[in-house]
Amino acid sequence: MSDAAEKLAVVTKVRADDVAPNRRRGGDIRVVLSPKTVASTSGFMGTLTLAPGEFVAEHYHPYSEEFLFVVRGRLTARIDGTQLVEVGAGEGLMVPKGLPHRVWNDGEEEVYAIFHLSPLAPRPELGHVDTEPLPSSGAAEALPDVGGPN
């Protein structure tokens, strides 16, 4: 098998609807492409759905930048406890590593966004640090299982 054919053989497609939602930090978070699902080695990507009034609790990523792109709706992000940024459909936001951030939907329309984190933390449990109490509805749910770096 040629190198090109071998690379094509490992291409994997994953449907967001086939991934179990995680609500531990708030909203509906689905890690779609990750070391666990597609053997990625540089980061992971997923979807975030926030109903009106929902939020993702404040946290930070000690090893990763987070890229957030809003497909539908409008959300508000609080960065580093003070900076408020509204992000609407067709707009993206990059949160530098180490900065605490929280996002919420204070509108009347559902928000649908795509996120990507890169690079990967050395181990999945080191990837997120929570800095506020988690929503009670998801506090007992496990952390998203993105797998570890290959």
Rank of each mutant, 00 (worst) to 15 (best):
A20W: 02
P21S: 11
N22R: 10
N22I: 11
R24L: 07
R25Q: 09
R25W: 12
G27L: 14
D28H: 06
R30I: 01
R30G: 00
R30E: 00
V32I: 10
S34T: 07
P35S: 11
P35D: 02
P35N: 12
P35M: 04
V38H: 07
A39D: 13
A39T: 13
S40M: 12
T41P: 04
S42D: 12
G43C: 07
F44Y: 12
M45T: 07
M45G: 09
T47Y: 05
T47R: 07
T47V: 11
L48V: 15
P52R: 05
E54A: 14
E54L: 03
F55K: 14
V56G: 04
A57Q: 03
E58H: 08
Y60C: 04
H61Q: 05
P62D: 01
Y63C: 08
S64I: 01
S64L: 03
E65T: 09
E65M: 05
E65L: 03
L68E: 02
F69L: 08
F69Q: 02
V70P: 03
V71N: 10
R72D: 15
R72K: 14
R72V: 14
G73N: 12
R74C: 09
T76W: 05
A77L: 06
A77T: 12
D80H: 03
T82C: 00
Q83V: 10
G88W: 06
G88A: 14
G88S: 14
A89C: 11
G90P: 03
E91I: 04
E91C: 09
E91L: 04
G92V: 10
V95W: 06
L99G: 00
L99R: 11
L99D: 00
P100C: 02
W104I: 00
W104L: 00
W104S: 04
D106S: 07
D106M: 02
G107M: 03
G107T: 07
E109F: 04
E110A: 15
E110N: 12
V111K: 00
V111E: 00
I114V: 13
H116A: 09
L117C: 08
P119T: 10
P119K: 08
A121F: 05
P124A: 15
L126D: 14
H128T: 14
H128G: 11
D130K: 03
T131V: 15
E132M: 13
P133R: 15
P133V: 14
P133E: 15
L134Q: 03
L134C: 14
S137R: 14
S137D: 13
G138D: 02
A139V: 15
